[in-house]
Amino acid sequence: MSDHPTAGLDDVVHQKHRLAILTIAAEAKRVEFGYLQQNLDLTKGNLSRHITVLAEAGLLDVEKGYDGKRPKTWVRVTSAGRRALAEEIATLRALVARHENLS
């Protein structure tokens, strides 16, 4: 018997907001902290914690800089991050497809 699709879920990635961060970052070259905060409707601290978890897992690169005098933080998805996102999406699709086949 084949493994249940949920066996392929990665604990670091399989969290709604972290998946959303990876999805948005994978759509662009890099994305700014404020953009993520506004779109995901998260507090600064909460978003910062999610980004730290993803960066420590090697799924995101974080760049800190300035735009004039304003500090800006940009995040960029790594190739490992793109792979992890693709695997997670494939697992979620397999889960949905399995349910549709059973019903």
């Binding site: 999805t23 662009a28 699709r93």
Partner: peptide, 25 residues
Amino acid sequence: MSTDSAAGLLHDLAEYRARARRDRH
């Protein structure tokens, strides 16, 4: 994880992706 939440999550991710794409156009 329930199938409904998996489908909902996929839907939300597709919306985030579409919005980011629209914003960067």
